[in-house]
Amino acid sequence: LRLEVKLGQGCFGEVWMGTWNGTTRVAIKTLKPGTMSPEAFLQEAQVMKKLRHEKLVQLYAVVSEEPIYIVTEYMSKGSLLDFLKGETGKYLRLPQLVDMAAQIASGMAYVERMNYVHRDLRAANILVGENLVCKVADFGLARLIEDNEYTARQGAKFPIKWTAPEAALYGRFTIKSDVWSFGILLTELTTKGRVPYPGMVNREVLDQVERGYRMPCPPECPESLHDLMCQCWRKEPEERPTFEYLQAFL
């Protein structure tokens, strides 16, 4: 395994491009020591290896001592969030954005069929390849993070704006909380990567959403798509659509 080009840095580690087995181009995620327990990670990795779908980033291998390494397929255009905010983002029109959403829903419909939960679905965790191919990455890892700023769910590192209220408040993460996050991801797509709930801080978002506030229809977004977002944001988790439905609708 060779680490060649550093692609990015996040709160919990770095991402590199490299070569595996001398020939395969891969992405390598390294986790800061202390982010998660190697034992817990190894268990999760076994499950992650079983998830194989064309719209999920394929896991190739893991190094399960500290520092933990995760070796996955390489996606040339990086994260969907950076892609939307970058040069190419300007030229993306609604049909392409909807197609990308459908690809993500397709990957998540598979996660749904496998009775698995992602827990951290957002544009930053979707990767883009050639020809606007989108794949879901980092599934299941969020559960293992041991950082206090994260586990408190009120901490600075927790993605509260993407998280369903029952998950943020009571830790009830299910495929239905993933559906909520998918609704937020749809706003990221239609606004080219704007942060959700602009002008609001995490605490406010939690309070307002509890009181029934939902983001309005983004500019140039059809009402039918906003309606779909609002279905994803129904207060009762069981009233939210399935990913199978979302995939078919898109």
Rank of each mutant, 00 (worst) to 15 (best):
A105S: 13
R113Y: 14
N115I: 06
G199T: 11
L92F: 12
F12Q: 02
L185G: 04
G140E: 01
V15Q: 03
Y197L: 01
L132I: 09
T151D: 05
E66S: 15
M114I: 04
W20Q: 14
W16T: 15
R25T: 12
L42A: 04
V201R: 08
F182L: 11
K135D: 03
R240T: 01
T174N: 13
F139G: 00
R113P: 03
V128A: 06
Q9R: 06
P216Q: 10
V15H: 01
I70E: 02
E220G: 10
Q58P: 11
V133Y: 12
T30W: 09
E238M: 10
V136S: 03
P237K: 15
E66T: 15
T30Y: 15
W20D: 14
G22E: 10
Q231E: 11
T151V: 14
V71D: 00
E54A: 12
G86Y: 06
R122L: 00
S37Y: 05
A142T: 06
E239R: 14
Q58T: 15
A109P: 00
G22D: 11
T187L: 07
F182W: 08
M200R: 08
P95M: 07
F12L: 00
K49C: 04
E244V: 13
N148I: 04
V26R: 09
L250Y: 13
P196Q: 01
T163F: 01
K85P: 07
A142E: 00
R234Y: 11
Y69E: 08
E4T: 15
N21F: 14
H118G: 00
E65W: 10
L144T: 08
S181T: 07
Q231T: 12
Q9N: 05
E14T: 15
E166G: 04
P216G: 09
L59F: 00
L31Y: 04
I70T: 03
Y213A: 06
M229H: 10
T151P: 01
V133G: 13
A142G: 02
G183I: 00
F83H: 10
P218D: 07
R25L: 12
A105F: 04
Y170H: 07
G18L: 00
H226C: 09
G22S: 11
T242F: 14
M215W: 02
R153Y: 05
G86K: 10
V136Y: 02
V98G: 07
Y110I: 06
E236W: 15
L250G: 08
G171Y: 14
S64M: 05
A27D: 01
L141A: 02
Y213R: 06
K176C: 10
F158M: 04
L169S: 09
T187E: 07
F249Q: 04
E54K: 15
P165D: 00
E220V: 07
D138H: 00
Y91V: 08
K49H: 03
Q58V: 10
G212I: 02
F139T: 00
F158H: 02
E238V: 05
N21K: 07
G13P: 02
F249K: 06
I70H: 12
T187D: 08
A156Y: 05
C230L: 10
A45D: 02
Q154C: 12
L84E: 05
K157G: 03
P196W: 03
R240G: 00
S79D: 15
P95E: 06
F182P: 00
E239C: 14
A123P: 02
S37P: 08
C134Q: 04
P216L: 08
D120I: 00
V5S: 15
D99N: 15
R214V: 11
K55C: 12
